Simulated assay, not measured.
Amino acid sequence: MESSSYNSGSENPSSNGNISSFNSTRVEYMNSRSSEVGPLILYGVFSVFGSTINIFEISSLIVQETLCRRGNVLLVNQALANLLVSAVSFPVMCVAILAGLRNEHFICEWEWHTALACFLVTVMNYLCISVENYLQTCRKEGDLYDNCFRVQLILILILTTWVAAISFVTTLFVLQRGPNLCQENFEDSSMLFVFFVPVFLTITVFAKAVYEQRNITQSLSQQNSIGSREEILQRHLLNSNVVAFTLFLCFWLPFLISLTLHSMTSVPPISTIHQLFTLAQIYSCVCGIVYALIHDSFRQGYIYLIRYLCFKTHGELSKLMTPEKTRGTVRVHIGMETRVGDRSRKSTRIPCVISHYESSSSKCEEDFL
C-alpha cells in the first residue's frame, strides 16, 4: 500500500508538468496564429476585390463600343499586370498563412519577385500609354498615329514589356543580385534609379499631352465648340490615365524611396518597409476603381456587368420577365391594328358624309359611329 501510494504520488507531478507544458505550448501557438488573422483577411479581401475589378476593366473594354479601339489594348495589358498580384500573388499568400508557411523564405521570394515583375510591366506599359495618348490627342494630323501604333506594333510592345520584366526578375533571382526585401539586402539599391527613367519620361509625356490638350480645348471654346465625339472621349480617357498613373506613383514611390534611404542611412526600419511594400501591392487592386469613378464609358460598362451578373444569379427574375414582354408585344400589335382600322374607316366614310349629308345624314352617322 505504501509503495502504491508512493508511485501515485510520484506520477502526479510528472503528469501535471506535462499538462502545464502542453497548455503553455498551446497558448503560445494560439497567440502566434492569432497575429496572422489580420493579414489573412487583408490578403483575402483584396484578392477577391482586386481580381473582380480588373476583370471588370477588361470586360468593359470589350462590351463598350466607345472603348473598342486598338490603343486601349494597352489598358488590357495593364489590367493583366494587376491581375498578376491580385489573382496570383495574394491567393498564394493566403494559402501560405493557412498552412503556417508565411515566414518561409521561398514564400517571401515569390511575393517579392512577383510584385517586382508587375511593377516593371506597369512602368513600361504606362510609358507606352502616355505616348499613345499624346499622339492620339495632340498629333492627329497626318498618318503619324497610324504609323506608330499599328496593331502589330502594339502587340510587339506588349510582348516586349513582359519579356523584359520576366527576364530582369529571373536574372536577379538566379544571380542573387539587386535589392532583396526577403534577405534584407539593400546594397545594390542604386539600380532602382534605373526604374525612375521610364517614370520621369512618362511624367513628361503626360504633362505635355495635358498642356497641349488644354490649349486645344481653349481654342475650341473660343469658337463655341467642344469638339467632336471622338475628341471628347479621347480627352476623358487621357485624364483617366493621368489620374491612374498619379495613383500609381502615390502607392509605389514611398516604397522605392524607403529602400533607397535604408541602403544609405538604415532609416526607415525594416517593418516600415514591409508595410510600404504591402501598400504598393494594393495599387493593383484599386487601379480599376479610378476608371469607374472618372470615365463614363467604364462606369457604364461596370454597371452593365453588375446587372448581368445579378440577373444570371437570380434565374427567377428572367422567367418572370419573359411573359410580360410577350404580353406587351401582343398588346402593342393589337393597338396598332385598331388604329389602322379606325383610320381606314374614317377615310372611307368622310366622302359619304360630304356627299349625302343632306339626304342620309342619319345613316352615315350610324355607320360612322
Rank of each mutant, 00 (worst) to 15 (best):
87 A>W: 00
214 R>Q: 14
296 D>S: 04
365 E>M: 07
283 Y>P: 12
197 V>I: 15
184 E>I: 11
351 P>G: 01
77 N>S: 06
107 I>T: 03
164 A>M: 04
162 W>P: 00
354 I>L: 14
145 Y>D: 05
300 Q>M: 09
345 R>V: 00
301 G>Q: 06
20 S>R: 15
176 Q>T: 11
256 L>C: 13
38 G>V: 10
87 A>K: 06
354 I>P: 04
353 V>S: 13
230 E>C: 06
293 L>W: 05
324 E>T: 00
31 N>A: 08
256 L>D: 09
155 L>S: 08
350 I>W: 05
148 C>E: 14
287 C>N: 12
261 L>K: 04
184 E>M: 14
193 F>M: 14
29 Y>I: 07
204 T>R: 08
307 R>L: 13
33 R>C: 01
330 V>S: 12
41 I>N: 02
279 L>V: 13
8 S>Q: 10
91 P>R: 02
27 V>R: 06
294 I>M: 11
311 F>P: 05
201 L>Q: 11
80 L>G: 00
222 Q>A: 09
27 V>S: 08
54 N>R: 05
330 V>F: 13
102 R>K: 12
347 S>G: 02
61 L>I: 09
311 F>N: 14
248 F>I: 06
139 R>W: 04
299 R>C: 02
284 S>K: 01
336 M>C: 09
220 L>R: 15
281 Q>D: 13
146 D>M: 12
39 P>Y: 04
323 P>R: 01
11 E>H: 01
166 I>D: 01
187 E>Y: 12
347 S>W: 09
266 S>K: 04
111 E>W: 04
319 K>W: 09
130 S>T: 04
240 S>M: 06
187 E>N: 12
335 G>I: 08
203 I>D: 08
212 E>M: 07
15 S>E: 05
127 L>I: 02
211 Y>D: 13
253 L>H: 03
369 L>R: 10
319 K>F: 10
362 S>P: 00
14 S>D: 10
95 V>M: 13
333 H>F: 14
53 I>W: 10
60 S>Q: 07
348 T>A: 14
258 S>Y: 06
227 G>C: 08
353 V>M: 14
90 F>E: 11
